[in-house]
C-alpha cells in the first residue's frame, strides 16, 4: 500500500458515496446513467470473486464489500425505489456494444486462461469503458448537475491516482501488470475532456454545460 493507491481508493469510495447520497437526498436519479451503474456493478462482481479465493487484508476485503454493496444499492435505487425519476430517454447507450467486445477481448488477451482470471480481466477492461453511457448521456443533454460532475471527477481521479501508484510500484517493487496499466490509461484518457470542463467551469462555480 502506498499513498497514491490509498488516495485512489478513497477517491473511488468518495465517488460512490457522493452518488448514493445525491440520489438518496434528492430522491431522484435524474441525470445519472443507470447503464453505467449496472456496468460498474458487473465490474465489481466479476473482479471481487477473489474475495472467496484470496484473503489479503481486512482493509482489502472490507473495501471490496463496501464497493459491491454500494454499487448494488445504487442500481436498486435507480431501477426500483426512484425508478420514476430515472431519465431513461437520455440513457440510450447500448450496453451490449461494450460488454460483448470486452468479453471477447478478455478471452483473447489475459494472463491465464482460467475462469477467474478471465473474469478478472473482463472486469478490468469493462471498468475502462463503463463510464461511456454516462458521458454519452451528458453529451446528449448537454449538461450535468454540479453534484454529478463532482461524482465524475472523484471517479476519474481514482484511476489517475492508480496510474501514479503503478509507476511507484514499478520503481519500488518491480511490480507491474500490463493489462491493468493499459486499461487504466484508456480509462483515464476517457475522462480528460471532462476534467477540462470540470476545472474550467465547475471549479469556478458554474454548472457543467457542453459548448454548443
Amino acid at each position: 500500500m502506498n499513498i497514491f493507491r490509498l488516495l485512489g481508493d478513497l477517491s473511488h469510495l468518495l465517488a460512490i458515496i457522493i452518488l448514493l447520497l445525491k440520489i438518496w437526498r434528492t430522491r431522484s436519479c435524474a441525470g445519472v446513467s443507470g447503464k453505467s451503474q449496472i456496468l460498474f456493478a458487473l465490474v465489481f462482481t466479476t473482479r471481487y470473486l477473489d474475495l472467496f479465493t484470496n484473503f489479503i487484508s481486512m482493509y482489502n476485503s472490507a473495501m471490496k464489500l463496501i464497493y459491491l454493496v454500494c454499487s448494488y444499492a445504487t442500481v436498486f435505487l435507480m431501477y426500483f425505489k426512484f425508478k420514476a425519476t430515472y431519465d431513461s430517454n437520455h440513457d440510450t447507450f447500448r450496453m451490449e456494444f461494450l460488454v460483448v467486445p470486452v468479453g471477447g477481448l478478455a478471452f483473447l488477451v489475459n494472463h491465464d486462461f482460467t475462469p477467474l482470471e478471465i473474469l478478472w480481466t473482463f472486469s478490468i477492461y469493462l471498468e475502462a469503458v463503463a463510464i461511456l453511457p454516462q458521458l454519452f448521456m451528458i453529451s446528449k443533454t448537454g449538461e450535468a448537475e454540479t453534484i454529478t460532475s463532482h461524482y465524475l471527477f472523484a471517479l476519474g481521479s481514482y484511476r489517475a491516482l492508480y496510474i501514479v501508484n503503478w509507476v511507484f510500484r514499478f520503481y519500488t517493487e518491480g511490480f507491474f501488470d500490463l493489462i491493468a496499466i493499459v486499461a487504466g490509461c484508456v480509462q483515464t484518457i476517457l475522462y480528460c475532456d471532462f476534467f477540462y470542463l470540470y476545472i474550467t467551469k465547475v471549479l469556478k462555480g458554474k454548472q457543467l454545460t457542453l459548448p454548443a
Binding site: 500500500m1 473511488h12 477473489d50 489479503i56 473495501m63 464497493y67 494472463h111 511490480f175 501488470d177
Partner: peptide, 10 residues
C-alpha cells in the same frame, strides 16, 4: 507472482 499481487489492488 503477478497473480497474487493484483488481488491486493481494488
Amino acid at each position: 507472482e503477478a497473480l497474487i499481487d493484483k488481488h491486493d489492488e481494488l
